[in-house]
């Protein structure tokens, strides 16, 4: 399912953060929005995700979206495993199977069995970030939007996550935002300057 962005313009008060932006995304692949702070990268992700409707222009394609929020937004009263599993626990689903799949994903992202039952407050910043990424990846959407996915991650975890992101981009459309030029997943991705 392709995603079409037509002449999107967004103002915050008097300030224009996106001006007449258009782009046509295919149904899979890895794309990175680049540019200095304040150029509207996060805003564009929010518009694509349907969280910001106060703009002119249009976003078409009816694609469902998953988004890694820059501020993580983990549910404080759930464990790391529950935070990931909950996005797939819909009515009538096999909860045990969903939990098992969520656990498998987290374990592949450098978590230990013990970490799975920890609440976000008991996790380091890097582990919280990996939990948030795992949750975004685990949600079965057509488009995966990642706002600064490599923030707070060390080299080893960057490489692990890079592999996860590249794998996801082979199955669906992944659009990322990163300020860091050494972001390993940017290699081989399409860069879109804003």
């Amino acid at each position: 399912m392709s995603l079409e962005i037509h002449n999107v313009t967004k103002y915050f008060g008097e300030q224009c953060v996106l001006s007449d932006f258009s782009y046509s995304f295919p149904d899979r692949g890895l794309y990175y929005l680049t540019g200095d702070s304040g150029r509207g990268k996060t805003t564009l992700l929010r518009i694509i995700a349907g969280l910001d409707r106060d703009f002119t222009g249009s976003v078409t394609g009816n694609a469902s979206c998953s988004l890694l929020f820059q501020d993580k937004r983990l549910f404080g009263n759930l464990t790391a495993l529950e935070n990931v599993a909950i996005v797939n626990e819909k009515r009538g689903c096999d909860r045990a199977a969903v939990k098992e799949a969520a656990a498998e994903l987290l374990l592949s992202m450098n978590f230990t069995e013990e970490d799975l039952s920890k609440r976000p407050q008991a996790l380091s910043g890097g582990m919280q970030q990996r939990t948030a990424i795992a949750r975004a990846v685990f949600y079965p959407a057509d488009v995966l939007l990642l706002d600064e996915p490599f923030k707070e991650l060390d080299k080893q975890n960057r490489d692990i996550l890079s592999a996860v992101i590249i794998r996801e981009s082979e199955k669906r459309l992944v659009i990322g935002v990163s300020h860091e030029a050494d972001d390993p997943a940017r290699n081989g991705s399409v860069l879109i300057p804003l």
């Binding site: 995700a49 998953s66 937004r73 549910f75 759930l78 996005v87």
Partner: peptide, 24 residues
């Protein structure tokens, strides 16, 4: 509100939203 937005994005059910956003 930020958690509610996340719950909306992930299409959490009413009871899931109560559990994750409203109860805490």
């Amino acid at each position: 509100g930020a958690l509610l937005e996340a719950a909306y994005l992930y299409r959490l059910t009413f009871f899931q939203r109560v559990r994750t956003c409203y109860l805490p």
